[in-house]
Nucleic acid binder design. Structure first.
Lengths: 157, 157
DNA sequence: TCCAACCTGCGATTAGTTCGCAGAAAGGAC
DNA sequence: GTCCTTTCTGCGAACTAATCGCAGGTTGGA
């Protein structure tokens, strides 16, 4: 599906929900479509939006992503201690972030099926995480023996 | 183990790591021991510490929990969009938080075994999350049909 | 007892995000 | 198209959680 078409589809989705379609929302969605699979923070998103429409205010972008998220069009992901980043809902996935080097790995939502079952069986809890960030150590850092648990303390920033 | 004894054990653990034992650290640990299984935010922790030792500054409590966390004595948990809360490392567990009513459910670290295996097999990633928060809807809210996905939008604050 | 390294009180500062307001624009009704 | 209500936006100020720099105080090994 061409990107302009996808944009229209998303905008229709908004209208169907009774959420208004405005220049800011169009612009934000266009940028996110453009960004493909990348996750973008609000500040960066505002910068990109302003390249084409300089009048759009940062606080509007905050409100916009919030509205789009509530409509289920966007997902919010907080990786490590970085600011929240957004991406189109599309394929549900989550992240594993290396505590030593910050590298990230994506994994599909289906990897949570077992956990989901357990929570449902045991607590009747319907897990439906918008986004999950699992910390640990990536292959490279495990191999290097970097900062294994139980080692002398050190800062991780 | 009596609580005073446990405190000493934790302090020894600090000394063994070459981290100094100070009044602030003693006080913070004492409060967390006292809190039992509860998770406490920094602000609240500082308030409690000050009831006995009014001179201890908020920023010191921030630095203290950080030091204790790095020594593996504390764990940090961010539930929903609330400020980070701390608890003694003890039994590793995680939380499921209801997106509708905010109720929380604890689940053991072992519930992540399947996910851990998948991440290890597929990416060589050694997941060792200090804390995980899974969102979804709790039994009660699922039963009530509150805010099921695909429903008209609404605020969740 | 001494001393270097470390920790703390304090206030200022930052980063990220939210808010209140008055005016602008969307979109349904006519 | 025109009107009108509701919703959205620009703007700056405000707020919250957390961090930092500094100067003085404390810790614990030598």
């Amino acid at each position: 599906m061409p990107s302009a078409r996808r944009l229209d589809a998303l905008l229709d989705q908004l209208r169907d929900r009774g959420v208004r379609v405005t220049a800011a929302r169009r612009a934000v969605l266009a940028e996110l479509l453009d960004a493909g699979h990348d996750h973008i923070g609000v500040e960066e998103l505002a910068a990109r939006v302003r390249r084409r429409t300089p009048t759009i205010h940062l606080s509007t972008v905050y409100r916009t992503v919030d509205a789009l998220r509530e409509s289920g069009i966007l997902r919010a992901a907080r990786l490590g201690d970085q600011p929240v980043a957004y991406h189109l809902a599309g394929d549900a996935h989550h992240h594993a972030v290396c505590r030593s080097c910050g590298a990230t790995v994506e994994f599909p939502d289906t990897d949570l099926d077992d956990l989901r079952d357990r929570l449902a069986d045991r607590h009747g809890f319907a897990a439906d995480p918008e986004h999950l960030t699992v910390s640990g150590r990536c292959r490279r850092c495990v191999g290097r023996g970097v900062d294994s648990p139980g080692t002398a303390p050190g800062h991780h920033r």
